[in-house]
């Protein structure tokens, strides 16, 4: 038990994130990682491939087409993994609530650890969320990824309702 706590503590000091540029929010990511806010001070670093990432940052609205890839990317990430949804759109659709091509709630499809509300959230808000996630990881509270195992039927049902029964088999680029 003590060992797990120690690992949690170290993990919280080194979180690599994958910024899938799904929407507008991606524009506030560069200031967060570059000179002004420099999130690397806290050991949080952008990574290019899902295999190497701990945090999955969903930066904005999700169209149907993107959501498929997001689910794929999420499933490729090694566990434990944390999802931060950025902006109003993944929470309730935001300004695109009545669009025919964007989804209104992200947590119907994959579990989310933290939401950053706002359109668009400032870089400080992103920093705040990352530090909050760091705290959660340190205390062992960021467990949303376990939900994906426990409630996979629920998520799978929603995914199939949107993309069709055998979407995984037929997906290409």
């Amino acid at each position: 038990m003590e060992w797990a706590r120690l690992i949690d503590k170290v993990t919280s000091k080194s979180l690599w994130m994958m910024m899938y540029c799904t929407g507008c929010g991606a524009i506030e990511m560069p200031p967060t990682v570059t000179s002004r806010w420099d999130v690397e001070r806290f050991g949080i670093m952008p990574m290019a491939t899902p295999r190497q990432a701990d945090i999955f940052l969903i930066t904005g609205y999700l169209t149907k087409k993107t959501l498929k890839r997001v689910i794929y990317v999420y499933e490729q990430m090694p566990e434990p993994k944390y999802v931060i949804a950025h902006g109003s759109c993944p929470i309730d659709g935001g300004i695109y609530y009545d669009s025919y091509n964007t989804i209104n709630r992200l947590d119907l499809f994959i579990p989310v650890d933290l939401y950053i509300q706002g359109c668009m959230p400032r870089a400080e808000a992103v920093m705040d969320a990352l530090l909050k996630l760091r705290e959660m990881v340190e205390k062992g509270e960021a467990n949303a990824w376990q939900k994906y195992h426990e409630n996979f039927e629920y998520y799978d049902k929603n995914q199939k309702a949107l993309f069709g029964e055998n979407w995984r088999a037929v997906m290409t680029l």
Binding site: K64, D92, G93, Y97, Y100, T102, I103, N104, R105, L108, N158, A161, L162
Partner: peptide, 10 residues
């Protein structure tokens, strides 16, 4: 007709 697109909470 595509309820997965909507926000059930609404």
């Amino acid at each position: 007709t595509h309820p997965a697109l909507a926000n059930p909470l609404h």
